[in-house]
Each structure stands twice: as C-alpha cells, then as structure tokens.
Design a protein around this nucleic acid. Structure first.
Lengths: 342, 342
DNA sequence: CTGAAAAATGGTAGCGCTACCATCTTGACG
DNA sequence: CGTCAAGATGGTAGCGCTACCATTTTTCAG
C-alpha cells in the first residue's frame, strides 16, 4: 500500500486545493487570480468563494520560479540612517504598498564593491525592477544592471548616460545655487564644509567652486572636507577647523543639514553672530532648518518625490510603456532664511 | 523529431549544468554548496571550480520552493524615516549582511491593520525569521506571528508575554528616569510634550506620570500631546502650547529628541534661559543632543544594538539553539547635560 | 444554418532546487 | 578476512505555480 506521505509544505492550501473545491482546472484559478478579465464572471465568483473559504494565499516562491520573475523591487541605497535616503525609500515604499510588489532593501554603505555584491545577490532572484542610488556604479555593477533584464532606475542624481532610467537633480547646480546665494547676500570668504564626500558631495563642491571662481572668490583654504561620515557633531568640528584655517571666514556652505546645524550650534557656543558675522547654508532642507534659531537657509531637495517617481517609471516600464523621458530632473529649491539674511 | 524548446529561464547556468561539468550528481553540488563538510575535499574543489567557471549562482526562488523556507528576514517597523527605527534596521542589516539572508522591509505606518496586512504578505513566503517593532500587535497579528513557523523577535520594547523572543527596554522606566532627573535637579512644574503617542510614547508618559505623582507634582495641565507625527517643527508648537497652558512651566520632558530640539529653539527665539528658566530632557539621545547649545539631557537608547541582538537571537533559534532568555532588556542611560544643569 | 474566428477552459510539462531514501565506499575491529 | 557502521554519493519525486499549446464552447457574419 502506498502511504501518501504528508505534504512537505505543511498543509497550507494550494492552487490545486482551490481548483478542486471550485470544480475547475488549476490553471483557471491561476488565471482568475492574475488576469481576471480572461475568466468568465461565473467562474471568477466561484473561484473567489473557494479562495476565501480556504484562506488561500499564493506562494510567491512558486510563482517566482514558474514565471521566472519575482514580484520584488530591489532597492539599493548607501545608507539607511541618512534621512535623505530614508525619505527616498519611504517614497518608494508608499508607492508600492498598494500593489503586489515586495521590497528588498540593500545597504551599500557607500561602497562600490558592496554594491556589486548586492547586485549579485539580487540578480538571481529576477526582481521586477531595481532602484539604485547614484550614477557612479562601478563597471561591473553597471554590467550587472544592464543584464538584469528588468527596469532599472538610478535615483538622487541625473546624468547623461542612464543604464535605463534616472530620477533626481543636479548636485552641481544645487551647490552652485547655494554658493551664489551667499555671494549675492554679500558674503565673501565663503567656506565649504563637507563630510563623507561621496560623489554627490563632490559635485556639490564642484558647483560651489564654479560659483566662487566665477566671482573671483575661490580660495582652496576655504574648503574643509573629511571622508568621515556626516553628523551634527562633525559639523561642529568641521566649522572649528575651517575657522582655524581661515579666520576671516564669513560664510559656510555645508554639504548637508547636519553639518549646518553643527556649525550653527558652534556659532552659538562661541558667540559668533549668525547671519551677521557668519552666514550658513545647508543642503536638503530637513524640517529642522525652518525651526532652528536663526532659521537656516538650505537647498530643498525632493527626496520623497524622487522615490515615488522612480516607482512610477518602473511600473510603467513593467507594463510595457516606453517612458517619455529616460532622465527626469526634479530640481531643487533654495530656501532663503534668517541664517543668510544679512 | 522533438525540438528542445529553449529554456524558459533565459539560459543562466543551473545546478544541473554545474553537476554535469563537474561530473557529479546534482544533489552533490547542492550539498557542496549548503553543507560543504558533508562532501569530500576532492569533489568540493572540483565543484567549486565548475561553479566559478560557469558563474553559477543558485536561484533563491527555486531553493525556497524546494525547501519550503526562504532565506529572508521579514522586518516590520512603523516608520522608515524615524531615525530610531532606521538605527534598528541598520543594526539588523549589518548583522545579516555576512550571511545568506535577504531583508524584506515592511512599513506599518504605526497602523495595526497595516501590520496585519503585511504579515499576510510575508507569511506565504515562509521567511526564515520575523522581526517586528513593538509588543502591541492586534490579536490577528499575534496569531499570524504565532503560526508563522519561524523565530519571531519583537523589538524596541519588552513585556512579559513575548510571541517568541523580545529585545528592547522599558519605556515606562525610561520616562520615569527622565522625570525623576528633572525633579532631582530642582524643577517642579515639569511638562510632558508628546507627539504621535504610539504605545511606546504612552508608556513613557505613564513613567513620567508615576514619577511626578510620587513627588506630589503631577498636574494634568502639564501634559501636552498630539497624535500628529513628531517633528522639530511640532516640538516648537507643543512647547508654545504647553507654556500657554501652564505659564509657570519650568521644565519639559520631551517624548523624543526632535521635540526637545524644537523646544530648545523656541526657547532661544523667545529668550527663555535654558537650563535656568526651563530645563529640557529628550528621549533617544541622537547625536545632535550632545552638540546642541546648550547640550540637551536625553535618555540614550541602544537602537543599533537592539537590531543586532534581535538578529543574533533569531539566528541562534534558526540554528536550533534554545535561547537563555526569551526577553532581553538592553536598558537605557540617562545622559545628563547642560539643559538640566541648574 | 454553416463555418470560422474568438473566447473560455484545461492538460502537460516543466521552472531549479532539495527531501528522502537507496546505494556504494571506506576502514575499524575482532 | 569477514562484518558492520559511518561516510560519501546519487536517483527519484516532488515543492506550487505558470508557459505553452490543445481543446471545447460561444459568437457572429454570411
């Protein structure tokens, strides 16, 4: 006698169970679930009833294996705690939570090698789309993205050579706008404070430099950077260093808002008047910039919107639509506040 | 003549390809990859060579289907942008990046219903472990967690009734310690400023209340809360409201550091002396608390460590070890700073 | 009413891997 | 030198689903 070995799976209902209960073929159930319009009204109702009664939930692993496509968006960001990327991820997440797609997150730690490793891990899963931060992938990463066989969206930056699609803004222009604003406001010895100095920071620095050179104000001693990750604490230290190096400093463009906040606190502590003695500009425009005392001028970037747009573009591509534009520039806005109101 | 239909998969090498090339059975390759110690040195080398040459990468979907277990950690947090959870996720991520496990992130938006929905989505995938924030799951969520058939770690809080395991600290005790510190420092009309008021905030409030009542200082007019999500901007508003409601206010325990920062900025703006006129205590101890001017007393919580420990416990459980303790209290530390140094 | 096209449904054969059990090799031991 | 346990390897049969094609039913022009 053949003993029907207990199902390995653990007894949760399968497509076949639903099909049996509804009195139809398994494939019809599959279709009713994925392309309801191709199944007659009658059967659809019958199948839905069976699904509800059994509490059937499709097995995503089996589905992925059979269709050679997982309902997963792979998302690669350089940092999870940096508010900037957290906002992008939130935008991605909110746009995806309505649909069937799951999100698999990868943290590259700002490392090209780690990015490659993660792409190697994501690839075999055959994700429905990949969203990666930045445009400075290594050659190997780029190759992995190109042969991923799914839509790819590079976010946070724009450039002329997308792997597939891009949503972001120009960090160069952002840095330039910030420096130009300080120059217009009457500041002359304007420093640049930068932490981590990833490629985006580098381009903001380049924008700053372009503006300063155009005004005949550039001086390498005004630039203070460190590869150390950014923090408010570091902002204070960078500001101190900058002031020690260039005592006539009268303004700072900070690589990001954390550093700007650290600089502001140091000014308070050292009784340096802001904006009178020193003007401060941040980057990203976190909510606290508005509330700070004095409020801090910053370059607002549209992180959440970038996440949303990236998903919209990826979904359109999955649906087979050709994008109107492969590269979308969401721009930035300079928010003028008290810290530069001289 | 039978025409060998092209492989659906798209031609990437499979286990069978590796087995053929190495001249061994498929199952041996599978073993060599998963339990190398059970395969002889010779074959292992031979197989590794074939793997390298073909660039073989196992298909995680097929693996998950065959073994009824996906190498995925499901992580559910109420917010992606709240730095507190971002740190926990980072801890989880860093502990997992060495191994084969992928991370699938879910954002519950502080909603019990959304949490249920996400558990429904995660369940059929048969994750290797689930990590969820908080201990206030709905009955349905709790049931889903119990029958998930994998280790479950509830993080950020502790309680007496874990689904499986817990890592966190007592928010009640944290709130109590903060209030007691203000009382000891000589403040009397100590307000509570709270945003969002999720269950953890509620328990911090309860701790504050217990300390205030013990000292005979509790007054409901001192408590200012809102269901609105927390932000620095909101901190300023809450502080203003609190002061309007209780003009004799001489201290505030803020639900979190964003609010504390907003309160501090409002004090600057209104020329209220800190710590002389008003004492301020935050919660979580983000890096900026130390740098603020004046530096802000806060309750340091070990978010990153919570993430790491949660993973360690889950991995141990997967390996079949019985945990020494099902509930791990990682505590907190009150960091005394200038904002309460009266 | 007929025939052909379109719509609805189903059967078969995998997707790439692992669980389970069977077989074959070793080598320790009396 | 035979016996047997332990170790190494392999074959078979799925996991639960979908792609592909075949079949049946319906629709509608002529």
């Amino acid at each position: 006698m053949i003993k029907p070995r207990p199902r390995r799976g653990g007894g949760r209902p399968t497509l076949a169970d639903v099909a049996r209960k509804a009195g139809v073929g398994a494939i019809t159930v599959s279709r009713a679930l994925r392309e309801p319009e191709r199944v007659s009204e009658d059967l659809r109702r019958q199948i839905q009833a069976a699904v509800d009664e059994l509490g059937y939930l499709p097995d995503p692993n089996a589905r992925a294996l059979a269709s050679a496509r997982a309902e997963v968006f792979g998302v690669l960001v350089p940092s999870l705690t940096n508010n900037v990327f957290a906002e992008v991820v939130r935008g991605i997440y909110d746009s995806l939570s309505a649909g069937p797609f799951r999100i698999q997150l990868g943290n590259t730690h700002y490392s090209g090698l780690e990015e490659e490793r993660l792409l190697q891990v994501f690839g075999p899963q055959r994700p429905a789309a990949l969203i990666v931060a930045g445009i400075d992938q290594t050659a190997a990463s780029r190759h992995l993205l190109e042969k991923a066989g799914c839509p790819v969206v590079q976010v946070m930056e724009i450039g002329s050579d997308p792997v597939d699609m891009m949503v972001g803004f120009s960090h160069f222009e952002g840095g330039k706008a910030a420096a130009e604003h300080l120059i217009e406001a009457g500041y002359r010895r304007i420093g640049f404070l930068g932490a981590r100095m990833d490629p985006r920071s580098q381009r903001r620095l380049a924008g700053y430099r372009a503006a300063m050179e155009a005004a005949g104000l550039f001086d390498p001693r005004l630039v203070t950077t460190t590869p150390v990750p950014s923090s408010v604490t570091l902002g204070r230290e960078l500001f101190r260093d900058a002031l020690a190096k260039a005592p006539t400093l009268d303004g700072v463009f900070c690589n990001n808002d954390d550093i700007a906040l650290g600089a502001l606190f140091e000014c308070h502590r050292a009784s340096i008047a802001v904006p009178k003695t020193i003007g401060i500009v941040g980057f990203n425009d976190l909510d606290m910039m508005e509330v700070a005392f004095p409020s801090i001028t910053s370059v607002r970037t549209h992180r959440y919107e970038i996440g949303r747009r990236a998903v919209a573009m990826a979904l359109a591509a999955i649906a087979g639509e050709r994008p109107a534009e492969r590269v979308v520039d969401l721009g930035f806005e300079l928010r003028r506040r008290e810290s530069t109101a001289r």
